[in-house]
Design a protein around this nucleic acid. Structure first.
Lengths: 184, 184
DNA sequence: TATCAATACCGTATGAATACGGCATGGATA
DNA sequence: TATCCATGCCGTATTCATACGGTATTGATA
């Protein structure tokens, strides 16, 4: 093709599956379309706004003695689940991640992501299931996995058959194809 | 200041807390720095690569009879948890989201996000806890919340006191400030 | 053929989360 | 003062996930 290449990074940013926002001193400097749409706004309605608009009314917005801020300072990032307010008034539960670009002054410049929590996610694994699948992925047998995790081989079989039933596949191996392999 | 403004959208994209990738026909066209770093690469090592590099070795990469692909076609998006392979060989469990930009041909252009799953996330709420917190956020009393959810008022108290203990706050109201209010 | 792995189906025991009850206390407010 | 609400502490019952045991079947493979 001879058409100029589109700005794919910009496209990826705007249509990312999670909302992304960059704030400076709590003021929104940029956000992607996904984020604006999530909350019922247009991007240009949000840019320049205080982050406060996303939250419940009369919280003491300046109170910063907060777990989040401390972790942000110490580790550079912070994760939780939080309720953000849609323009229409209702709340939306999101998995929230924040990363500061200036650890010395955590709020100076922060990039955040918001992913709506779907209470009926079709695919959710327990910690144990993830452990077993990871070792299955390395072609270990039940016995070997059991030894690694300090469990009975029988228990590994349990985990496997649970997964088989839950996801309706024939062999647990299929899950590896499904969860780690193809598509997308 | 007189310095030209930085490209904040670009900055937000690259330093977003979640990895973001755009593929065309399974070939990576762009990804952010977070994604590359998550897997142990430089961005320019990944651009142009087949998405296959991220996954286990000899999976039949072309087999597309997949839950994911069907949902991607039907709903435009797909979410699961999956294991991606770090350059160093070990697996990383990620919460995976895909959104296709061309529903008629789902793989034509896909934007995905990868957020590492931390098994010891300090803040995780159950569905019930989210429901109760959301209604608390609207200043409803236990009785009112109970009526809304079809539960005993006593049970709402339970949920509240569980939350109070778990997060070490004095009043459940504090959680609203913490989970929905300040910071970031 | 003999062996081993994965699967299927039969159990049981434990622990955690959830839902509920009673009751006592402290604080706000009508 | 009387009432209502949130909280704390004492219970109990149910459900589900997890972990484990035995045993039988199938399929690959040494």
């Amino acid at each position: 093709m001879d058409t100029p290449p589109p700005d794919l990074a910009r496209l990826a940013y705007d249509s990312a599956p999670t909302g992304i926002v960059l704030t400076e001193q709590r003021v929104i400097r940029t956000c992607n379309a996904t984020f604006a749409q999530l909350l019922g706004y247009q991007v240009d309605e949000l840019v320049g706004q205080s982050f406060r608009v996303l939250y419940g009314s009369d919280e003491e917005f300046e109170d910063i003695r907060d777990i989040g801020l401390i972790l942000l300072q110490q580790t550079g990032q912070y994760i939780d689940e939080r309720l953000v307010r849609h323009r229409a008034g209702h709340g939306i539960w999101c998995r929230f991640r924040a990363r500061t670009l200036v650890p010395q002054a955590p709020l100076e410049r922060v990039v955040m992501s918001f992913a709506p929590i779907n209470d009926a996610e079709p695919i959710t694994l327990s910690k144990r299931e993830r452990q077993v699948l990871e070792l299955m992925n390395r072609r270990l047998t039940s016995k070997e996995i059991a030894k690694q995790l300090g469990l009975s081989p029988r228990t590994i079989d349990d985990v496997r058959s649970r997964l088989i039933k839950r996801f309706g596949v024939r062999r647990a191996q299929d899950l590896l194809g499904r969860l780690s392999g193809r598509q997308g």
